[in-house]
């Protein structure tokens, strides 16, 4: 085809390239730069991999990383099935469908730090509705003192905040299944479970991979909500990676180690996302292969 046309096309992309350079590449390079040097005031000297060794051997950070994985996998294990379940129960059409959609979308519209404040107040033993009721029921609920209480509360908060996203994705996936499949299942006398297992779930796979990917990346970077709710406590029981990083970089001004830490953090997310990406691509390839070789027409 026309070569000149392609060159023009590159020119059109240039503004985006410049934007990305300023927004992502240059800051990232700065971080890489910091991670390899010791910066004291105006002087800086090269330290090689020292900061990386230090951060990787830092037991506090190791603990935070484990906590982070535990958190991400817990919420995935709950939110994905729950999201599917909600999507299955949502009405299919009419005003009820619209109403439920609006209701379910609400938590997604709340800013992240507001979510933290809301739950902080909600779970307070003195004036919070949930905290008060649980205490009235005889359980000594206190997220500032009990690590388990704090953990459970953060998980429930995250479920409240983000399950709607999974539910919405699944809902759209379910809606795109042609009605004929359900009619066929009824004719075959498939049970509700069999209909789900053999029609709905297989048709949801692609959507679910996207949901898992989004939720993993999201949850792995969680910061504002637990920070506002528990401040990372009690102790450091709910201190996740991003909060550790913030403490290190802003409170302690350990620029070198925190830069090294940032990069490690970034690489972990990149690696896990890459695994998901490859999974999606493989699934699509399989799909394309099914549609038969040669789509010349």
């Amino acid at each position: 085809m026309d070569k000149r046309e392609y060159q023009w096309a590159w020119l059109m992309v240039l503004p985006v390239l410049v934007l990305v350079a300023f927004s992502a590449v240059i800051p990232l390079m700065t971080v890489v730069n910091y991670s390899l040097q010791d910066i004291l005031g105006r002087s800086a000297f090269f330290v090689g991999a020292e900061w990386f060794e230090e951060t990787l051997n830092n037991s506090r950070l190791q603990a935070a990383l484990m906590r982070q994985f535990a958190f991400s996998f817990t919420i995935l294990a709950i939110q994905i099935p729950l999201g599917i379940g909600i999507a299955l129960l949502m009405p299919k059409r009419g005003w009820q469908a619209s109403a439920v959609l609006i209701l379910i979308t609400m938590p997604l519209l709340v800013p992240w730090n507001v979510v933290g404040s809301m739950w902080q107040i909600f779970t307070r033993g003195d004036i919070g509705l949930a905290g008060f009721i649980i205490r009235e029921l005889g359980y000594d609920y206190n997220i500032t003192a009990n690590a388990v209480d704090a953990w459970v509360t953060i998980i429930i908060m995250d479920i409240w905040h983000w399950t709607p996203l999974v539910a919405l994705l699944c809902y759209s996936g379910l809606r795109s299944i042609p009605e004929a499949y359900f009619q066929a299942a009824r004719i075959d006398r498939a049970s509700k479970w069999a209909t789900f297992r053999y029609i709905q779930l297989p048709k949801l796979t692609n959507v679910l991979v996207i949901a898992v990917l989004l939720r993993f990346m999201h949850s792995f970077m969680i910061y504002a909500e637990p920070f506002v709710l528990t401040g990372g406590g009690p102790g450091s029981s709910t201190t996740f990676l991003s909060q550790s990083l913030a403490t290190m970089a802003i409170a302690q001004q350990d620029l070198g180690p925190s830069a090294a830490f940032s990069i490690t953090y970034f690489l972990i997310i990149l690696a896990v996302s890459y695994v998901f990406y490859v999974t999606i691509m493989n699934m699509q390839k399989e799909k394309a292969a099914q549609q038969g070789a040669g789509g010349a027409e």
Partner: peptide, 20 residues
């Protein structure tokens, strides 16, 4: 209902259980 009528139906596009 459809299931009580004991019919079979073939649709405009193929409806099969993909994973089976």
């Amino acid at each position: 209902s459809t299931e009580e009528r004991n019919i079979g139906q073939v649709f405009q596009f193929p409806v099969v259980y993909d994973t089976m």
